[in-house]
Design a binder for these strands. Structure first.
Lengths: 194, 194
DNA sequence: TTCCGGATTAGCACTTGGTACTAATATCAG
DNA sequence: CTGATATTAGTACCAAGTGCTAATCCGGAA
């Protein structure tokens, strides 16, 4: 018994976690035990066989791909929109969005949600951000649901420049606000692109 | 011969393209031909078997995961840094970063590069963006290499607030600039966390 | 020392989803 | 009708397992 069973099983889990492609035979060589022992270990730890592991990794990846496709044009989910007037989107912060060191969401995700919403609320083929002023009022953490509200401000808008004001909050507490000065091509489209 | 062989093979490829999880048996039912025909088709089209398909999908996904892990903390690659003074990062724009409609890079990527650089240039465990003013001077497109330069401005900085100025350019032409007002906890660390 | 029990190893039958190959049919076109 | 092409059938074999039984090994307590 080189290393105790418990530790071997622990390491086995860790190893397969970062490299799910190893067969039982490769694993048995790695830990210098028989293939049968590896199988018993997997059985006890509830670790599925190679093929099942690959299947689940592949599934995860396809879902992720789909997800990133959806979030491609708009970051966050738009729940309400009145073109050229106002819009609302929600964005659920997960551990993927935070700094590992302090658990606080990286600013560019809040910006991305706001900026995407500013683009979406304008019914225009070519809406570009020109200038923008941002305020990060309070840190946002994993698990928070950020609700961004966009309001098109016509007083400040002139000609091809439109001003969109965004306020984002978590549980009714303001976490972010920004003013987006957008350029519009004017080639306004009425067709439903989305 | 219900549908011509050529078309069946074409559809087979398309089908597996969007759903690589189907076995030959399932495929044979789908196309109402024998399993052997499916195998001949795969052979002729050079389509690998289920297990190989899953393996390649899984590999792709792990690579993608790794990639996103690397770009996790810093968006763009830092090529030069002098802590608390200045830093430079480069970010290659690909088709993943642009609007499908007009081929122009989404603003939040430029912001992410700049913001990440502003965080990185400060040698602090807890550096947060508080306010920021941005200017998008010129559209950026796929293939462009954006070089962002950060300079810490000590004239404007006071106490726990530090101002970082970022200018991003493509082939020496200014495309983006921004002023980032950062909050620093003061728990300055000298260790290399990277 | 001997004996017990958990840990390990071995061996065998069986499963999935295939490959590789051969042979028999079916179908269509000239 | 005949020849080519397409399809189907059937066999042996493989990888990477599961599930099961049985044999060892090995360390500590009686």
């Amino acid at each position: 018994m080189r290393i105790p069973k418990k530790e071997r099983q622990h390491r086995l889990g860790a190893l397969l976690d970062e490299n799910p492609f190893m067969t039982d035979e490769e694993l048995s060589k790695h830990f210098r035990v028989s293939v049968q022992t590896i199988r018993l270990d997997r059985l006890e730890c509830g670790i599925p066989e190679l093929r099942e592991r690959l299947k689940s990794v592949a599934t995860r990846s396809l879902e992720a791909e789909l997800k990133s496709m959806q979030s491609d044009e708009v970051f966050g989910e738009i729940v309400d929109i009145e073109l050229d007037r106002r819009a609302i989107s929600i964005f659920d912060v997960t551990s993927d969005h935070v700094f590992q060191r302090n658990g606080i969401a990286r600013g560019h995700h809040l910006f991305a949600q706001a900026n995407s919403l500013a683009v979406a609320v304008l019914d225009d083929d070519l809406a570009l951000t020109v200038d923008s002023t941002l305020h990060f009022h309070r840190p946002v953490r994993a698990g928070d649901r950020v609700i961004a509200r966009a309001i098109v401000n016509y007083e400040l808008s002139t000609g091809k420049r439109t001003v969109v004001e965004i306020t984002s909050s978590v549980e009714n507490e303001l976490v972010f606000s920004g003013e987006f000065h957008m350029y519009r091509s004017g080639t306004d489209t009425r067709r439903e692109t989305k």
